[in-house]
Each structure stands twice: as structure tokens, then as C-alpha cells.
């Protein structure tokens, strides 16, 4: 057995943390884009489009992220498509994130009084212009705090990518433990890693929420 110093462990975990951060950022950015598109679709005048988006959200919210990862990795591979753990994890997390963000943002859009839509409409703005100039800018303000809050869930969700072999923070911790048999030390550091990523975001979300409540309607 090779000897690992404490610094070796920390250094390897820090290096692995980059992948956790990268996966989180991509999941969040990609999920944000898909989620925004879904939010707009969910406001469509066509009922079947709205139902389809609602079904999508129900599917991703109603099944464990772990199963979504298995499907994206083992399931897709079983179909004969060669897919890397990185790609599978990215796809699964983007879809998962988009469903939750769409739900959050849809709630924020619905919180904008219907009078705003009507006022824009009688001024000649069509649906998309109303969204862009009137509804979304107002919805965005109330969406920021819950969105930042949800980003914490995304970061913690990336830990599940370890089970399909993606070497992010958790997976690296498992591998180090297999080599050193120091589970308490290692997983404490892994947990600390997540905490250092998540806690500032939680604080920031709380700060934003408080500021929003003070700032009133503007």
C-alpha cells in the first residue's frame, strides 16, 4: 500500500473538486438555457404544448436523479451508443436542472399580476414582446433568490455522477479511501469540499431574498 500524506489526500480532492465545479457550472448553464426555453413554452397558448412541458417536469421531478443518470449512461449504452460518463452525467444533470428551474421560473412568471399582461397587450405588445419587456424582467427579480438556492441542489446532485464512474469529488474520495482506508478523514474532507461550495451560495441566496423583501416592488 502506498503511503498517502494528508496533503496528498487534500491535493487530490482539490483537483477533483474542479470537476465537481465544472459539472455544476455546465449543468446549471445548460439547465438554465433549456429551463428558460421550457418556461417560455409553458406559457404557450397551445394547451398541448403546456401539458407536454408539465409532463417533462413531472417526469424529472418524480424520479430519482440516480435513475436518470443510470438511464443516461447504462441505458443509452445498451442502445448501442457509445457514451462517456462525462457526457452522460452532463446530459442527465442538464435535463434534471432544467426541469426544476423551469418550475421555479414558471412560478415567478405566474406571480406577475395578469394586469401587466393585459396592459402590455393593449399597448400592442404580442406575447413574446410582453414576456421580454414586461413580464420576464419583473419575474427575474423574484427568481434570483430561489434560483441561487437551487444551485446548491445541483452541486450536491453532481455527487451522484460518481456512481457511473465520473471522477469528481465524491468518486475521487471513494478511490482514495480504497487506497488508504481512512474513510473518516477522507469523507470528512469530501463533505467539507461540498460545504465550502454550497454554504456561500446559501448565504448569498438568503441575502438576496432579504434585500428583495426590503427593496419592495422595483
Amino acid at each position: 500500500m502506498t503511503d498517502f500524506t494528508l496533503w496528498d489526500i487534500v491535493r487530490n480532492l482539490l483537483l477533483a473538486m474542479r470537476w465537481t465545479v465544472a459539472l455544476s457550472l455546465i449543468a446549471f448553464a445548460g439547465g438554465g438555457l433549456v429551463g428558460l426555453a421550457l418556461t417560455v413554452l409553458r406559457l404557450s397558448p397551445a394547451a398541448w404544448v403546456r401539458r407536454l412541458v408539465a409532463l417533462y417536469i413531472e417526469l424529472f421531478q418524480g424520479t430519482p436523479l440516480l435513475m436518470q443518470l443510470f438511464l443516461a449512461y447504462f441505458g443509452v449504452a445498451a442502445l448501442g451508443v457509445d457514451i462517456s460518463a462525462w457526457t452522460a452525467a452532463t446530459i442527465a444533470l442538464v435535463l434534471f436542472t432544467s426541469a426544476f428551474l423551469c418550475d421555479i421560473w414558471h412560478g415567478c412568471v405566474r406571480a406577475i399580476p395578469v394586469g401587466q399582461w393585459q396592459a402590455a397587450r393593449v399597448l400592442g405588445l404580442d406575447r413574446l414582446r410582453t414576456l421580454r419587456h414586461v413580464v420576464l424582467p419583473q419575474a427575474l427579480r423574484i427568481a434570483i433568490a430561489p434560483t441561487v438556492g437551487f444551485s446548491v441542489q445541483v452541486i450536491k446532485g453532481t455527487a451522484l455522477a460518481s456512481v457511473i464512474g465520473f471522477a469528481e469529488l465524491t468518486r475521487t474520495g471513494t478511490m482514495l479511501n480504497n487506497a488508504t482506508f481512512q474513510p473518516f478523514t477522507i469523507f470528512a474532507f469530501v463533505a467539507l469540499g461540498y460545504f465550502l461550495l454550497c454554504y456561500p451560495l446559501s448565504l448569498y441566496a438568503r441575502y438576496l431574498e432579504k434585500r428583495l423583501n426590503v427593496a419592495g416592488s422595483r
Binding site: P113, Q116, A119, A120, V122, Q138
Partner: peptide
């Protein structure tokens, strides 16, 4: 046609 509403509906932002 223009319209004015009971609750003004100005854009607060």
C-alpha cells in the same frame, strides 16, 4: 384602441 384600467397597471420596473 387604447385602454386605461381600474388598477393603472403601470410597469413597476
Amino acid at each position: 384602441v387604447g385602454m386605461v384600467f381600474q388598477n393603472f397597471n403601470l410597469f413597476p420596473h
